[in-house]
Simulated scan of single mutants.
Amino acid sequence: MYETLEITREGGVATLWMNRPDVHNAFNEQLIAELTVACRALDADDSVRVVVLAGRGKSFSAGADLNWMRRAADASVEENLHDARKLAGMLRTLAEMQKPTIARVHGAALGGGMGLASACDICIASEGAVFATSEVKFGIIPSAISPYVIRAIGSRQAHRYFQTAERISAARAADLGLAHEAVPADQLDATVQGVVTALLQGGPRSQAAAKDLIRAVADRPVSDEVVEDTARRIATLRATPEAKEGLAAFLDKRPAAWVPAKQ
């Protein structure tokens, strides 16, 4: 079904592998289009609880494919706008998935690769991973990825890294808030699995509601409108079957219905 992606499944976890290892999983039109389609399909699949985004080969993603960039340099403004909208749409699709998303980052996560890591809910990086918003070195800007990178590291840090294009180590990425953890390479998969296990304990509808809550509340002052909105959100959720099951499971000292059975 996909030429630039591979999807593996284990239980309720789908791992979305970018599969262009010969070019370090760099973006081109096809990878952008296939990521968009795959994210939508996985988000609509009730059997999927968690989506892990990863890269085959030596890197997570090295950003834009050089051949794609060469074509863009010769294209018209309208043609470039069309491509930019596709990239921006893919990142938004990933960022707004209802399912929890984890970026499993190793090797290079440059330009758009850093954007992908930022667009995921959670980022776990190998200690050898390297991030950068490298666009200014090519005379462009990290425009499509900027909402997600700024959300992750803040505008103050973005002022530095958007202009310097400095390489950011995994440890520094963790300090900045871009990566939630930076771990030894041989512990990367185990750490991702630990986060997956924790996510599978939560109710899927409440997790989707939690993501929507963050989007509604983040960076807003505590106003009457925000207080009322948050009150209505919890009141609405308390009446759902999922919330009733969660409370019943807690009182009965048993796993909730959505928790996978132990193997």
Results as ranks from 00 to 15, higher is better:
I168H: 06
Q98E: 14
Q193T: 13
R167S: 13
A132P: 00
D186C: 10
V50Y: 01
D83Y: 12
E245N: 13
E79A: 14
D175R: 11
V136S: 04
F27G: 04
V105T: 03
A190Q: 12
P204Q: 01
L251N: 02
A26F: 06
G107Y: 09
P255A: 05
L178W: 01
D189S: 14
A243M: 06
A165I: 07
A173R: 08
A64D: 05
A132E: 03
A208C: 00
A152T: 06
A257W: 01
A152L: 05
V37E: 15
R151D: 14
S223G: 03
A152S: 12
A170K: 03
I145T: 13
S169D: 01
L188K: 03
R160G: 05
R70G: 15
R70N: 15
L176E: 00
A190F: 07
A198P: 00
I7G: 03
G11C: 06
Q187N: 07
A64H: 07
L178G: 02
R215K: 00
T101N: 10
I124V: 15
A261L: 09
V217W: 04
I102G: 04
R49P: 01
L16E: 06
G139F: 00
N80K: 12
R104M: 14
R70K: 15
Q98L: 04
L178P: 00
L91P: 00
Y2M: 00
V227R: 10
T15E: 14
A54S: 13
G89S: 11
G63Y: 06
D175F: 02
K253H: 10
K244C: 11
S61H: 10
T236I: 02
A218Y: 07
Q201C: 05
R254K: 12
P21R: 04
C120T: 01
W68N: 12
A119C: 01
L81R: 15
